[in-house]
Amino acid sequence: MTARLVSTGDAARELGIHRETLRAWWRAGLVTPASETAGGHARWDVDQLKRDLRALQQRDA
């Protein structure tokens, strides 16, 4: 099954956060997009992003 990749804004909307928050997490190295476009725009696999965030929460708990 192929992952559905979405923009930073769409991924943030699905998570219920502001897109700048997601960008800040990316810049801090907390999360990594599934891919980047030639223009440097992130594309996110939201399911993987949610798993990554859960792992971060468990690590920090």
Rank of each mutant, 00 (worst) to 15 (best):
T2Q: 14
T2K: 14
T2A: 11
A3D: 10
R4Y: 04
R4Q: 06
L5R: 09
L5C: 02
L5G: 03
L5E: 09
V6T: 15
V6M: 02
S7W: 09
T8N: 02
T8M: 02
G9S: 05
G9K: 02
G9D: 09
D10T: 15
D10R: 11
A11I: 07
A11Q: 04
A12T: 09
R13G: 04
R13K: 08
E14C: 05
E14N: 06
L15F: 05
I17P: 08
I17Q: 11
H18T: 05
H18P: 03
R19P: 07
R19S: 11
R19K: 15
E20C: 06
E20D: 14
T21E: 09
T21C: 15
T21A: 14
L22A: 01
L22D: 11
L22F: 06
L22Q: 02
R23T: 09
A24Y: 13
A24K: 07
W25T: 10
W26V: 07
W26A: 13
R27A: 00
G29Q: 04
G29K: 03
L30K: 15
L30W: 09
V31E: 00
T32L: 08
T32V: 15
A34H: 05
A34C: 10
S35W: 02
E36Q: 13
E36A: 13
E36D: 04
T37S: 05
A38M: 10
A38H: 15
A38T: 13
G39L: 10
G39S: 07
G40E: 06
G40C: 06
G40W: 04
G40S: 05
H41M: 10
H41K: 12
H41W: 08
A42Q: 03
D45H: 11
D45S: 05
D47P: 10
D47G: 08
D47Y: 03
D47K: 12
Q48I: 03
L49A: 11
L49V: 06
K50F: 00
K50Q: 11
R51E: 14
D52S: 15
D52Q: 13
L53V: 08
L53I: 12
L53E: 02
R54S: 08
R54E: 13
R54H: 08
R54T: 14
A55K: 15
A55Y: 14
L56M: 09
Q57C: 13
Q58S: 15
Q58R: 15
R59L: 13
D60M: 12
A61W: 10
A61S: 12
